[in-house]
Amino acid sequence: MRRAFTHIMLLGFGFAYVYPFLWAVGSSLKSPIDFLDTGLGLKPTTFMWDNYVKAWEQASFGTYFLNTLIISVATVACVLLLTAMAGFALARHTFPGKKALIGVVLATFLLPHGYTIIPVFDIVKALGLLDTLWSVILVQVGGGLVFGTFMFMAYFQTMPRELEEAARVDGAGYNTLFFRVILPLSRPMAATLGLFTFISSWNNFFLPLVFTLGKPELRTLGVGLYAFTSQTSTNWTLLCAGAIISLAPIVVVFVVAQRYVVDAIAGAVKA
């Protein structure tokens, strides 16, 4: 009875957690009148599949989708490369001021974006990158370096040093050791961090809004959803359809990378 009660409670909490997503899916297939009549109901009276076509065309989702994809892929690639190299250096080498450096870097991780957005904006403007996709990419990469570095550092510390020693005996240099031995072995951590970074970049709203404000054609999907809202009304059905479109790539990426995520978590538990 205790186990059955636990399962019932978990199912209830799970349904409450998933319900907003199910409601968004159902609402994306409703007509505007059906949306108002059914309220929090999940099932549409009539299935309006053309809501997705209208959302894609009316809000220029094709352009926003491409912008979001470019920004997210570039951010993931840069974050993984830079944090893997920094994490390996911090995990395997000792140098004067290492602890102080780690402390300072960790302190920057605790700063909210609101406190740093003005100086970052000034730097981007001084570099002449304002209203470009590169501005969003570089700022997001900078924001993900600290977390990724510490993730890789902790992962590399669990690797046996015998691997490095064997590679050096075979004549591998530092670059060969890192790119052909260490980095391939860190694939589970790279997949985990890449997934988190991709989700964070894909869903980011604040940074793309600030750094592409002067060029609406550079907006991302998160910012583009505002096309369905105005001062007087909101097209809720198309807004839900646009939200589902923006979530679909994240689901696909998670399904592809979940095996590596599980391996990374299992490795961390064993360590």
Rank of each mutant, 00 (worst) to 15 (best):
I33M: 14
F47E: 09
S135H: 11
D131R: 09
I118S: 04
F95L: 06
F95V: 07
S27H: 12
R92C: 10
T68N: 04
Q140H: 14
W23N: 09
G144L: 07
H113E: 14
T46K: 10
Y19N: 11
A86L: 13
A154H: 04
T68L: 00
S72L: 00
V25T: 05
K98C: 02
F152H: 06
Y155G: 03
T38P: 06
S135F: 06
G114T: 14
V73N: 01
G142M: 12
V76H: 02
P119D: 07
L29N: 03
F95W: 12
F47I: 15
V104W: 07
F147G: 08
T108W: 09
A86W: 08
T68F: 01
M48W: 14
L82K: 02
T46I: 13
L81E: 05
L40K: 14
Y115M: 14
A74K: 01
V105D: 03
L127I: 03
F147K: 10
G114R: 05
V53E: 08
S31H: 10
G143D: 08
N67W: 01
W56L: 11
T45S: 13
T75F: 02
F147H: 07
G26I: 08
L133I: 14
P32T: 09
A107D: 03
A77P: 00
I137T: 10
P32Y: 12
V79Y: 09
A107I: 13
W56R: 08
F95N: 07
A74N: 03
P119Q: 10
T116D: 04
